[in-house]
Design a protein around this nucleic acid. Structure first.
Length: 641
RNA sequence: GCUGGUGUAGCUCAGCUGGUAGAGCAACGCAUUCGUAAUGCGUAGGUCGUCGGUUCGAUCCCGUCCACCAGCUCCA
């Protein structure tokens, strides 16, 4: 007998070998219907398996993430079966469930086209409709599994089994498709019917660019048709918010083929966004004790040899050679420049902390395939700062960074973010700069800061880069997507390379603690993110065009111009539409261009000194005195909401 | 960088197995003087991403390069 503990705390003694199906029969019908698999002590089992040992017993349902993963994983098997039936001799790599769907990586001679996706979908439906499909599980010794997959001509599976080095492995069969797989899988394959194949892509076997390039098919699947529909709509919504589309459409920014990929052109309206972001950023940094500096865009390569970038980062740097055969580097980072300014004189511990901030434009020669709108570019402006401090000040400084980041991000409308702490791998200390003591101290400072704020976070050991541990903040946007923004990093490398020191209380030279931080990340990426978050309809204080005055007819042009003039004098970004078009036409254009307020003036308003106000988001707001409207708008802009 | 796809007017797109291109919107002109999401008529606009090849002839077929898209990889 073994003991199963249910989620409500109740316990039950059951015989080893009892089918889970028997246990389920005792559960409420609603729960039973939703059962996909069960788990005992987090080990998942197929519903048709039997109790092997005791522990915490949980029914994995169609409502849970785990249940959805099982569905998705199962559907990837179904897709693989369909591909095998359609194309015969193909070699399967891996086919896991992922964040919002599943994929399967396949090596085959035939090059898949989008048309093939439809054929595969049709075959999948046909297989389901046949009605005799079911997953069956077998356990066999690894040696036999190797033999089996060798016979099936599935070299990737053989490699996987060999690398596992386990005594036994499990395989699942679905029709004629046999896969190495831990499972579990659905008892009822008909649950997989609400699926959609989404896209094709290339993917290296095991992510290694020296190995086979496989064909990857992406798809998604849900338990309910409505959920699938919703997900496809969500994808559609995301496409509509795409900053790469909205940027040019709203005349904010664009990337020009003539100039090259990854280089951004800011149009007048987009420049206003930048200006607003940067001004607010500078204001808040000054308040928080930062000093603004500016460093050159190019510098002799010697500087980058000292920093180590020249050796480790060369393929990403743009090099410039002058007539006298002197080599320069277009700066890929601001740190060495900031260090040169710090090193201008000797610093006492009394001077610290020193916080140098720069909206520093850097250039990195990213591989062409990685470029992506404003999110991944070759020229971008980091909202950068370097803090030079003593070990004692470290924690306080990290905490201040966190506060400042929070202030900036929430003001820009991002209420949620995820926190990740990238820590060192104690097993591999030799690959890191700085002592283990330094690392532990720095990671504790980072950890304390996060814990003091009582927010959930993930600590990832071994994720840190060699020069120091870091905290990253990921923004969550209006439709739930995550975007990389803030990074707060320690640097144990550069102070040593550049001999960056301060004089401590004992009159001794000591290496300074250096914190590298970018709160928005880069201005480009941040504005790309903002654009998608607001779907191009920015809040008033950021809106490129805050008010557009719309005269009804020609005779109202004079008054309209007067209104625009007064608004501009009050600091409002106002325009007038003086074309001889019907009012409906002008309103439609303002709406499409996402102008925040429209102010209509006809006979009545011209005589009364008023405007008929219409807001993009709330529709008609009614007639207002010009002066009062200006006052209200100025007030609202000041609130930054 | 790699795999696959795409590139036709400012924008969105059409163009049947090769015979030098078309629509809607936008622009411009004329008429209309208009009250809360598109007034009508007309005009103009393209070296069909680039360079090269095949062909009597290339937007279409082949190759090169550039850019973009879905990913992989990369982001010390």
């Amino acid at each position: 007998m073994v003991e199963l503990i249910f989620p409500d705390g109740s316990k039950q003694e059951v015989e080893k070998g009892t089918p889970f199906g028997d246990l389920l029969r005792e559960l409420p019908g609603a729960l039973r219907k939703k059962a996909v698999a069960v788990s005992v002590d987090d080990q998942a089992y197929d519903l048709n398996r039997v109790v092997e040992g005791g522990g915490r017993f949980v029914v994995l349902t169609t409502d849970s993430d785990k249940g959805l993963d099982i569905l998705r994983h199962g559907t990837s098997h179904l897709m693989a079966l369909a591909v095998q039936e359609l194309f015969g001799k193909v070699k399967f790599a891996i086919g896991p469930a992922i964040q919002d769907g599943f994929y399967y990586d396949i090596l085959m001679d035939h090059t898949l086209s989008p048309d093939d996706l439809e054929k595969i979908e049709a075959k999948m439906r046909e297989l389901l409709d046949r009605g005799d499909l079911a997953f069956t599980r077998e356990v066999l010794p690894s040696s036999e599994a190797v033999k089996l997959f060798t016979e099936l001509d599935q070299p990737f599976k053989v490699e996987l089994i060999n690398d596992l080095g386990a005594e036994n492995v499990s395989i699942y069969r679905l029709g004629a498709f046999t896969d190495l797989c831990v499972g579990p899988h659905l008892a009822d394959v008909r649950k997989m019917r609400h699926f959609k194949l989404l896209s094709l892509a290339g993917a290296y076997w095991r992510g290694d660019e020296n190995r086979d390039m496989l064909q990857r098919i992406y798809g998604t699947v849900f338990f309910k048709e409505a959920e699938l529909r919703q997900d496809l709509e969500r994808r559609e919504e995301a496409r509509k918010r795409d900053h790469r589309k909205l940027g040019p459409q709203l005349e904010l920014f664009d990337i020009k083929e003539e100039a090259g990929g990854g280089l951004v052109f800011w149009y007048p309206k987009g420049y206003i966004l930048r200006e607003m972001v940067e001004n607010f950023w500078i204001e808040e940094h000054r308040k928080d004790g930062y000093q603004m500096i500016l460093t050159p865009h190019i510098a002799k390569s010697g500087l980058w040899k000292t920093s180590g970038h020249y050796d480790y980062y060369k393929e990403n740097m743009f090099l410039i050679r002058d007539d006298e055969d002197q080599e320069f580097v277009l700066k890929p980072m601001n740190c060495p420049g900031h260090i040169l300014i710090y090193k201008n004189k000797l610093h006492s511990y009394r001077d610290l902390p020193i916080r140098y901030a720069e909206l520093g434009t850097v250039y990195r020669n990213e591989r062409s395939g990685t470029l992506h709108g404003l999110l991944r570019v070759r020229g971008f402006t980091q909202d950068d700062a370097h803090i030079f401090c003593t070990p004692e000040q470290m924690e306080e400084e990290v905490s201040r960074c966190f506060n400042l980041a929070h202030k900036l991000l929430t003001t820009f409308g991002f209420k949620d973010y995820q926190v990740e702490l990238s820590a060192h791998d104690p097993q591999n200390m030799e690959k890191y700069a700085g002592s283990e003591e330094d690392w532990i101290m720095a990671e504790e400072a980072l950890l304390k800061t996060i814990e003091n704020r009582n927010i959930p976070f993930k600590k990832i050991p071994g994720e840190a880069v060699f020069y120091g541990p870091k905290i990253d903040l990921k923004l969550i946007d209006a439709i739930g997507r995550g975007w990389q923004a803030t990074t707060i990093q320690f640097d144990f490398n550069l102070p040593r390379r550049f001999d960056v020191t301060y004089i401590n209380k004992e009159g001794q030279k000591e290496y300074v603690y250096m914190i590298h931080r970018a709160l928005l990340g880069s201005i480009e990426r941040f504005i790309g993110t903002l654009t998608e978050h607001y779907a191009g309809a920015f809040p008033l204080w950021l809106s490129p065009e805050q008010v557009r005055v719309l005269p009804v007819g020609k005779e109202h042009h004079g008054y309209a111009r007067e209104c625009v003039g007064k608004m501009r004098a009050a600091g409002i970004r106002a325009e007038g539409d003086f074309r001889e078009e019907k009012l409906g036409y002008k309103i439609r254009e303002s709406e499409l261009q996402k102008v925040y307020y429209m102010a209509v003036c006809g006979d009545k308003e011209t005589q009364a000194g008023t405007l008929d106000i219409r807001s993009k988001s709330k529709g008609r707001l009614g007639v207002k005195k010009l002066d009062l409207f200006i006052e209200e708008v100025v007030d609202e802009i000041g609130k930054k909401t």
